[in-house]
């Protein structure tokens, strides 16, 4: 056994309060102090001293009147369950986690629904087309994008297939018109800037009334590392697409506001 000199000052202070029973040591610092002091002779003497005094205190006789008088009912209030205890209960914990997961899924679905717009499915499909298209496939049309609407009307009789003002000043390389899987007439235009592609296609229609489903503003959509920004006007959707993300398209669509 070594001397108490090896104990820190803090340990020396705490060790004097060390209860005999280890289950009574409910403080981390005291537990550490006891652990350090266990090998010292002074602590062994203290423990032996304390045990003897405790045994003497336990020998204090209890009068018969006290034993008889101790009531059978409890005077101590039943402890209230705090929210911490509820949280630690596995049943509540599991239910809470499940509710949280459901809430997160619902929020994701809600956000996803809020971001959806009529024609989104077509727009995604066309982004896939954009990724596999080559300039060779197009008829060479070198003009301002703003003039492509007239070209499409004159050559293909497609009315309202106009490029919005935000992209009207960009130069085009070529253009083609094709029927997509649903038999809709789609115009595909190549621009010089950032190898951007424009798509013009009919807006989604209400199957009952046949009326075009309108939406306001620009909506983003992405597919296979391609990003598009879509706007509906006069029953025709315009999508500008490029290989990149929203940040690359944002300057164009905010141009008009400036």
């Amino acid at each position: 056994m070594s001397t108490a000199a090896q104990l820190s000052r803090r340990d020396k202070v705490l060790i004097h309060c060390a209860p005999i029973r280890e289950d009574r040591v409910d403080d981390r610092a005291l537990r550490t102090a006891v652990h350090h002091a266990r090998k010292t002779e002074a602590f062994a003497v203290q423990q032996s001293f304390d045990k003897a005094v405790i045994a003497l205190a336990r020998a204090v006789p209890i009068p018969k009147e006290i034993i008889e008088w101790v009531p059978t009912e409890s005077f101590i209030a039943t402890p209230r369950r705090t929210w911490k205890k509820y949280v630690q209960n596995p049943v509540f914990l599991a239910t809470g986690i499940a509710a949280l997961v459901i809430a997160v899924i619902l929020i994701f679905q809600l956000v996803d629904r809020l971001n959806r717009f009529p024609g989104e499915t077509t727009a995604r499909r066309l982004l896939t087309t954009a990724g596999s298209a080559h300039a060779m496939m197009l008829d060479p049309v070198k003009t301002d994008a703003g003039g492509i609407g007239d070209y499409l009307f004159m050559k293909h009789r497609l009315s309202h297939y106009d490029v919005p003002p935000e992209f009207a000043e960009l130069k085009t390389i070529g253009c083609r018109v094709f029927d997509d899987e649903e038999g809709q007439r789609v115009a595909q235009v190549w621009a010089v800037e950032k190898k951007m592609q424009f798509f013009l296609f009919p807006a989604e229609r209400d199957p009952k009334t046949g009326a075009a489903k309108h939406f306001t503003g620009w909506r983003y959509v992405d597919q296979d590392r391609w990003t598009g920004v879509v706007k509906e006007q006069n029953g025709v959707c315009f999508m500008a697409a490029l290989r990149g993300n929203e940040k690359d398209l944002a300057p164009y669509v905010s141009k008009k506001n400036e």
């Binding site: 202070v13 705490l14 060790i15 004097h16 309060c17 060390a18 209860p19 203290q46 405790i54």
Partner: peptide, 30 residues
């Protein structure tokens, strides 16, 4: 302390003492 009934924290609570105070009282008492 010698009732051997309380944990360290309970002792501090019932006696309303700080750890160094309790420590000194028990050390001197012994």
């Amino acid at each position: 302390f010698y009732l051997d009934e309380f944990s360290y924290r309970e002792l501090l609570s019932v006696t309303e003492l700080k750890p160094p105070e309790l420590s000194k009282l028990l050390r001197d008492g012994r």
